[in-house]
Nucleic acid binder design. Structure first.
Length: 347
DNA sequence: AACTAAGACAACCGCCAACAG
DNA sequence: GCTGTTGGCGGTTGTCTTAGT
């Protein structure tokens, strides 16, 4: 037969631990070491189940746990790792010495996740949310002022709901998550080449400082660009920029230029759901500092981080919200996963 | 000062892979 | 090979604190 049950759940205490219980647990583990959680409560004279003791030790009492606020670098690492690993809190915690998976998970759910949602970023996919076309605000405005409730006001001269545009936006976003698929193939599969050619859509070259620049060539459709940006897709494609560096993914010469999205384009001041980022914020410097972010830098963060993780000057929690938000996006969209990376090996 | 809402975080719950018997 | 337990993990809940009215 298998092992005997971990513990009899009847009569065991639950809820917050008392200092006396903590002391008992600490003393016992100092003498006998952690492990054998099944017999530990009985031996330590604790009315707790072994699982509760293990959690209390690993999440709170362990001497190597770092308490206190998360530093700027720690949050940066969390976001970047989450983009790669998803909700693998234990894997993320393994890269943040002194932090527990529970602590990171809580911090993500209470701080980072909410901030990303406010910014219109899906905290699960790290992509701008196409489903947030701000219909609610449109409808609210319409309710307050019925005169604006007409099709042209809702959709503009062309339309945010243009299925082709949405397909293009979706294709671009999908490239962020499935970098293996050649860009051209994705366009072809969605019949987007035809759309682009028929509409004489020229390459969209976005530049920092929120707004797209003057079209490079005649025939450029600013409306197209505007709609793409309004459709919340402009920040989705940090990886798309790599297409320009890859022959495999290059756009045919008929389009002349790559469709390039530079990092931080998610900040479109025309988007009512995304706050404007003041130029005085540290966003640009953060953007610059993250330009060369690499997967290796994530993996080696605890060692190679240029500033100590506990650097008091870089605590996230005490900073301005705007700065934190600007930081977040730069961290989100400014790193690349090297070719040939074996994720399974990393995990 | 009292009440309420929101925020923060510790702790619990349930699932599952690994492992012991 | 099967059964049942353990330990680990992610999701969720509960409780305490803080801020706002």
């Amino acid at each position: 037969m298998g092992r005997t049950p971990c513990c009899d759940k009847d009569g065991l205490k639950k809820g917050p631990w008392t200092p006396e219980e903590d002391l008992k647990l600490i003393n016992y583990i100092q003498l006998h070491g952690p492990g054998n959680w099944r017999t530990l409560p009985k031996n330590a004279e604790l009315q707790r189940c072994g699982k509760s003791c293990r959690l209390r030790w690993t999440n709170y009492l362990r001497p190597d746990i770092k308490r206190g606020r998360f530093s700027f670098e720690e949050e940066e690492t969390i976001i970047q790792l989450h983009c790669i690993l998803g909700n693998k809190w234990s894997a993320i915690a393994a890269r943040l010495p002194g932090r527990t998976d529970n602590e990171i998970k809580n911090y993500w759910n209470t701080h980072i996740r909410k901030r990303l949602l406010r910014m219109g970023i899906d905290p699960v996919t790290h992509a701008p949310r196409l489903d947030l076309l701000d219909l609610s605000s449109i409808l609210n405005s319409s309710l307050c002022n019925p005169s604006i409730l007409n099709v042209s006001n809702l959709f503009g001269t062309q339309t945010l709901m243009n299925p082709d545009l949405l397909k293009l936006a979706t294709a671009i976003i999908s490239l962020k998550q499935e970098n293996q698929v050649p860009f051209t193939k994705t366009l072809q599969e969605n019949n987007l080449f035809n759309y682009l050619m028929q509409n004489q859509v020229q390459p969209v070259v976005l530049q920092p400082n929120d707004q797209y620049q003057t079209p490079l060539q005649e025939g450029f459709s600013s409306e197209m660009t505007n709609q793409l940006m309004q459709a919340n897709v402009e920040g989705c494609c940090s990886n798309v920029s790599t297409f320009g560096n890859s022959q495999e993914n290059s756009i045919p010469t008929s389009l002349n230029e790559e469709l390039v999205c530079q990092p931080n384009y998610m900040y479109c001041s025309s988007n009512p759901t995304v706050p404007d980022i003041p130029e005085s914020s540290n966003f640009q410097s953060l953007y610059n500092s993250n330009q060369n972010f690499s997967f290796e830098s994530v993996v080696s963060t605890p060692i190679s981080s240029p500033t100590p993780l506990n650097s008091p000057s870089t605590f996230i929690n005490g900073g301005a919200e705007d700065e934190k938000e600007s930081y977040c996006s730069s961290a989100l969209f400014n790193f690349e996963i090297p070719d040939g990376l074996d994720m399974a090996e990393f995990l």
